[in-house]
Amino acid sequence: MIEIRNLTKSFGDNLVWEDVTFRIEDGETTAIIGRSGCGKSVLLKHINALMTPDSGEVLIDGKNIFELDYVGQRKLRQRFGVLFQGSALFDSINTFENIAFPLRYFTDLSEHDIHDKVMAALRHVNLESAAEKGTSELSGGMRKRVGLARAIILEPQYIMYDEPTSGLDPQTADEINELIVVMAEQFDITSIVITHDMHSVLEVADKVAFLDQQKLSWYGTIDQMRQSNQKNLIDFISASEYQIKSKSSI
């Protein structure tokens, strides 16, 4: 379980958010939503200790991750898989090597075992045929899937998705949403999804944390969100629903 307690972060004089508190239960998928620039990705980087807050705590299994030393934090990060917005694939190596990369450095597996694991991960994301392709030959959706295969290769306990459907066409976005659900169910992974795509939220999330006006403005389940009367949340959802309807009417 991940517990975020009274987290506050600012860059110089600019407050990003303050007093953010919520809990991510094991096996759940939590979507962190909010407008562009509200600090969703910054919050994500606090959850695996890539950034440190001005104050507050992130507890994982009861331990405050900011009290861990550098080596402890690096070990902690290996319990997380991260799918970055731009996929962050290493462009000097091909698809297979990108996925094999963490295995080569963090495990003692033989070449044969690495090959089997990488191909299994590629099968999970329906991309077996792209193993030998260079990363520049991959489309946006394929890059996301390769990034996802790399994120799950060390069998993490948690997986974080940073804008997983941004820049993708609706069909490919749906495929990625399906994969997020499949990964969570098949591997019993706790997922955290950063997005402003409400369609994606409705597809994948169990709970929603809404960042607005430099604080955690709303937190609850999908059903509670649908019934909420909170104006800024309704405005945010309505804007997205309008976009969804506009897309579907075309």
Binding site: Q78, V82, F84, D91
Partner: peptide, 17 residues
């Protein structure tokens, strides 16, 4: 290029120094 395309963040996220 690695920094702006988040490849360095990806390394750190995997637990690399």
């Amino acid at each position: 290029t690695m920094r702006v395309s988040e490849q360095i963040d990806a390394l750190e996220s995997m637990g690399f120094n």
